[in-house]
Design a protein around this nucleic acid. Structure first.
Lengths: 228, 228
DNA sequence: TTCCCCAAACTGCGATCTCATTTTATGTAA
DNA sequence: TTACATAAAATGAGATCGCAGTTTGGGGAA
């Protein structure tokens, strides 16, 4: 039967199947489409995506290595990690340190087209009124980190984001889309970048991260939070 | 090559085969037994280790995700990454930031048995005279980072170390085993930890890292260094 | 000797299958 | 109704196989 029962075949983009699965899962994690604690098995995912379990296995192993997923039940299966208060607070501390460093470097090293890109993303926010897009916030931050010119730093930050990604939309709903919507800190960041002021850039990023992570700490850890 | 036929089966320790391969490759990377630029193919490695290519494939994918290895020739094969001067300098900067943060946290959070462990590792150095063991240096650093109590930070630092690991022994030889052998900064670190002085701990770690990475920058990038 | 073309070998990717182990469901006995 | 033993289902790990794309090496022609 070629008529599939449900909505499969969402794998888009170039590259091998396993890479497309990784991209797909990364996107779904950052969109909150995968709930913390959710179990991902090779065969079920493979059936959903209409591929064999093999590239799924590759993709899951890679995401586990990136700390975007974790092994559960011994080696039994892979799951979306649950975060308790302590872990989320830890994540906040490390994000402030690591992304603060990235902001410092970006302030010292950005090139004109990179600052233009950052400003363009910030401008997107002000045209539409009620679109608290988490993706826009993400693109804003990573445009800055890319301007740090550090090939070493970017994967580290990517791993950090994937770890709290599943909790973003839940807190976003409860907080009325405050995360990344209030542009106050973002404007401060751009201003600091433009002035090549590393200290101010770090301070603004730390403030932005602190506000966002405090929202997660307050509203993100609902009933399903600290179970495992 | 006659030694190929008998030099297999070095996989020790518990767990699935793929995990043992990961451990084995990690150890070999940190010991400099794998040269930068060296190509690792599924089948050859599988034959060496006397396993099927499947767990090797899993292990290589995981190490690529950790940036300990990289894909070469498109998607053709996996190789030990080569570092050029810029990349190594980038690594130095990020190490100073990230491991400096870890030292700060460790100074604030260490528990008695952890400080005792750190001091014990430092004491090892002074008993034996001429053993500039890189492994001891590594254990010293990671004992400190473990005392940071940050589950998020440790994997990040582990990834950083694997990236410069292949260059450590070469610089170690040329520098006469200076890396990790001069205990000056290590003693400063322990002193700062004991005093719960986060600033001093960070400064001492940064000095230690700076000295080690400068050695790598000076002596580690020989002829085979900046190829890719 | 030099250049070029084609065949053989090699490589990673993906599919399929088996197996040991664990989880889950079922049915029986207390 | 509850407790437990047993069967059935599910799962990850690993082995084996085939395929498409690339590299490589050898042989023939100029």
């Amino acid at each position: 039967m070629d008529d599939q029962t449900t909505s499969e075949a969402k794998l888009s983009g170039p590259g091998p199947v396993n890479e497309r699965i990784v991209r797909d899962l990364r996107t779904r994690l950052m969109r909150g489409e995968l709930a913390p604690g959710e179990i991902l098995t090779h065969r079920k995912l493979a059936e959903q995506l209409d591929v064999s379990p093999m590239p799924v296995r590759d993709a899951l192993r890679q995401l586990v290595a990136e700390r975007a997923l974790e092994v559960a039940n011994g080696n039994r299966s892979v799951a979306v990690p649950r975060l308790n208060h302590a872990k989320l607070h830890d994540l906040k501390t490390i994000r402030e340190g690591v992304e603060g460093l990235a902001a410092r470097l970006a302030a010292e090293r950005w090139k004109p087209h990179e600052l233009a890109q950052i400003e363009a993303i910030l401008a997107e926010t002000s045209d539409g009124a009620g679109s608290p897009d988490a993706s826009r916030n993400q693109r804003f931050h990573f445009a800055i980190y890319a301007a740090s010119q550090s090939q070493v730093l970017l994967p580290l930050i990517g791993s950090l984001w994937l770890q709290f990604g599943p909790y973003l939309p839940r807190a976003g709903q409860l907080a009325g889309g405050k995360i990344g919507a209030g542009d106050k800190y973002h404007r401060e960041i751009v201003e600091a970048l433009r002035a090549r002021d590393a200290d101010a850039a770090e301070a603004a990023i730390v403030a932005d991260i602190g506000q966002a992570m405090d929202l997660l700490l307050t509203h993100g850890l609902g009933d399903t939070g600290s179970g495992g």
